[in-house]
Design a protein around this nucleic acid. Structure first.
Lengths: 342, 342
DNA sequence: CTGAAAGCGCTTACAG
DNA sequence: CTGAAAGCGCTTACAG
C-alpha cells in the first residue's frame, strides 16, 4: 500500500497510460498534450490532469524518431583545460539553455581519432547540428567524413572557407590595445607577447605594428618580443625592455598573464604604473586582470558572446538558413594600469 | 551523375537500405552488424561492406526506444563560471568519453527553476542517469520531484543522506596543510581564509585547528582570519598578521588566490619566503600557484579524479549497483613556498 | 471532436 | 543460417 498514483507499477509512464487514465485514445491524448488539432476543452483538461497525475514526460526519443528532429546539438571542444573553451561553451549553453535544445558535450583532447569517434557517436544520436570549438586561432582541418548536419566552427576556423567559422578579430584587438595606449599619450610602446607559432600572437602583433605605423611610430625595440604566454616571460622581457629602452612608456602584452609578470617587474624596478609606464593586457581574464596591482586594463574578446552567436547561427542553419562566416571585434576594458596622465 | 554510392538520395541511410544493398532481411542485417546471432561469415561481410559503403550509422534513438537504455547521461552544473565545475566536468567526460555514453551538459546557473526545467528536459530525453555538480560544499536540497534514474551528487552533497554524494575532505585538507607546515619546522602558524559562511572555509579551519591542537599549538592570533577568497584580502590580512605577530613563521591560506596576495605582501615587507615564513595555498590552481614568486605549495583536491569517479559510480548504479557516499582526500603539491629550513 | 491505423528505425523472439 | 512479424512510444493523416 503506497500513496503513489495508480498505473503500471515502476514503469516510466507512457502516453498510453495517460490516455487510459483519461479514458481517451492515444491519438487524442497526443493532440491534447501538444495543443494540436481540435480537442474539446473538457477533454484536454482531463488528459492534462492525467498526465500531471502520472508525472508523464513525453519520450523525446520516440518524437525524434518520428520527426527526424531531436532538439539536440553536439558541442565538440578540443580542450576543456584551456580557458578559451569555457566561456564559449557558456555562451552556447546560454543560447540553447532557454529553449528546447539540449547540448552534448564532447572533448576530443586535440586528438583526431577521438574526434572522429565523438562525431560518429553524435551522428548516431542524430544531433541536429554541431558546434566545433577550438582553442587556437590557426585554421584547423574540417571535420572528416560526410557530415549530414550543419556545422559551425568557433574561435578556431575551419581551413575550408566554405564552412561557417565564427572567429575573433585579433588584428583588431592589437589595434584597439595600441590605440588606447596612444590615447593615453604614450609614444614609446613595446609589445611583449607569446610564441610566434601562434597565429593569435602574430595577428595581435600585426594590428599593433600597423597602428603604430599609422601614427608615424615604431615599436620599442623595433619588433615584438615573442616568447611564451606566461608570467615568467612577462617578468624577464619587461626587465630587458626597461634596461635597453628606459624611454618605454607603454607596454602592450599579448596576454593578461604576461602583463601580470610585466607589472611585477615594473614594481620591482620602482617604475610607476600607470604614471611612468602604462600597461595593457589581453583576454580580460578576470582572475588575473582584476586582482593585480594596479588592476589591469585589458582587451576582452567577448568569447561568451561568440559562443552564444554560434548557438543562434547553428539554430538558424538547422532551420534552413545559410549563415556566413564572421569575425567579431573585441572591446577595451579599462582598469587602473593605463590611466591617462593626469 | 555523381560518384555517390547508390541508395535513396539525400537521406540518412537506414538499416533497411543496408539490408537491401546486401540482399538480406533487416533482421539479418541487424544481427550481422551487432555481431549477434549465428550469421554466415560471408553474409556478415556482405552486410558490413554495404554499411560501410553507405556510411551507415545506426539510429541510437530507435535503439534507445527499444532497449530503454539511451547510453546518455545528464550533467547538471550550477555554475560553469566557477573553477570547480570544470575539472569535475573533465573527469566525468574522461570516465564516459572512452566508452559509449554521451553527456548532456546543463548549467542551472544556481537557479532552482532553471534546474527543474533542465531535469525535465533530461528525463524527456531518457537519460540513464544524472550527475549533479555543485560549486559549494554546503549541502544542497536534493533534486525536486520523482527522479526515476540514479543520481550522483558531486562536490556539493545532497542534504538527503540517502542520496549518493561524492565530496571532498576539507577538514582533512586543512590537516594536510598544517601537518606539512609542522613538518617544515614551523610553530607559529596563521590561517588566512575566505568567508566563514562557506562550509569549505569552516572545515579547512577546523582541520587546521585540530592539527595544531594535537601538536600542543594554537593558531597565531588564536583564530582563523576569515575574510574573502581573493588576493586583496590575502594582502591585507598578511600585513595585519605580520605587524601584530612578527613571530609568524607559517601561513596556511584557504585559497591559492589568498596565498598569492600573502606572498606579495611578504615580498613587499621584505620577509623571505620560505626562509622566514612558509606559505601554503589551497586548490592547486595551476595558473595561480605555478606562477607566483616563489611558486606556491598547495593542497590539490583532485577534482578531476572526483569527476571521473562520479562517472564510474553512476555507470555502476545504472547497471544496478548501489554505490555509497564517499569523501575523498586531497594531496599536497610541493613547490618552493614551503621548503623546509636548509 | 474522436479514434483506428500506419509508420519512424531498429531488435528480438519465433518459425522455417 | 535466414526472415516475417511484433513492438518500443509517439504523431499524423484519414475516416467516422
Amino acid at each position: 500500500m503506497t500513496n503513489e498514483p495508480e498505473g503500471p507499477a515502476n514503469r516510466t509512464p507512457t502516453l498510453t497510460d495517460v490516455a487510459k487514465l483519461a479514458g481517451v485514445s492515444v491519438a487524442t491524448a497526443s493532440k491534447a498534450i501538444n495543443g494540436r488539432g481540435e480537442v474539446r476543452a473538457t477533454t484536454r483538461v482531463r488528459v492534462l490532469e492525467a498526465a500531471e497525475l502520472l508525472s508523464f514526460a513525453p519520450n523525446a526519443l520516440a518524437r525524434g524518431l518520428l520527426s527526424g528532429r531531436t532538439g539536440t546539438v553536439g558541442l565538440l571542444t578540443s580542450d576543456l583545460e584551456g580557458r578559451f573553451s569555457i566561456p564559449i561553451l557558456m555562451g552556447v549553453e546560454d543560447a540553447f539553455g532557454a529553449g528546447q535544445v539540449s547540448v552534448f558535450l564532447c572533448d576530443a583532447r586535440g586528438d583526431a581519432i577521438r574526434e572522429k569517434h565523438h562525431v560518429q557517436a553524435l551522428l548516431s544520436r542524430r544531433v541536429d547540428g554541431l558546434i566545433v570549438v577550438g582553442s587556437r586561432t590557426d585554421p584547423r582541418p574540417p571535420l572528416a567524413g560526410n557530415i549530414p548536419v550543419p556545422v559551425v566552427y568557433v574561435y578556431d576556423p575551419s581551413a575550408d572557407p566554405a564552412d561557417i567559422s565564427l572567429t575573433v578579430d585579433n588584428v583588431g584587438g592589437g589595434r584597439l590595445a595600441v590605440e588606447h595606449l596612444l590615447a593615453c599619450g604614450r609614444r614609446n610602446i613595446a609589445h611583449i607577447t607569446g610564441d610566434a607559432v601562434y597565429r593569435a600572437a602574430r595577428d595581435r602583433a600585426e594590428g599593433a605594428a600597423a597602428t603604430l605605423a599609422a601614427a608615424g611610430l615604431t615599436m620599442v625595440g623595433d619588433r615584438p618580443y615573442f616568447g611564451s604566454w606566461d608570467e615568467a616571460w612577462g617578468r624577464a622581457a619587461a626587465r630587458m625592455v626597461v634596461e635597453r629602452h628606459p624611454e618605454v612608456d607603454g607596454i602592450f602584452c599579448g596576454s593578461d598573464q604576461i602583463a601580470r609578470g610585466v607589472l611585477e617587474t615594473l614594481r620591482d624596478l620602482g617604475r610607476d604604473v600607470p604614471g611612468t609606464t602604462s600597461v595593457i593586457g589581453f583576454d580580460n581574464w578576470e582572475a588575473i586582470a582584476a586582482h593585480s596591482r594596479p588592476r589591469l586594463t585589458s582587451i576582452d574578446m567577448n568569447l561568451k558572446h561568440l559562443g552564444s552567436v554560434a548557438g543562434q547561427r547553428l539554430f538558424a542553419a538547422i532551420g534552413g538558413a545559410v549563415p556566413t562566416s564572421e569575425q567579431f571585434p573585441g572591446r577595451l576594458v579599462m582598469r587602473e594600469s593605463s590611466l591617462p596622465l593626469g
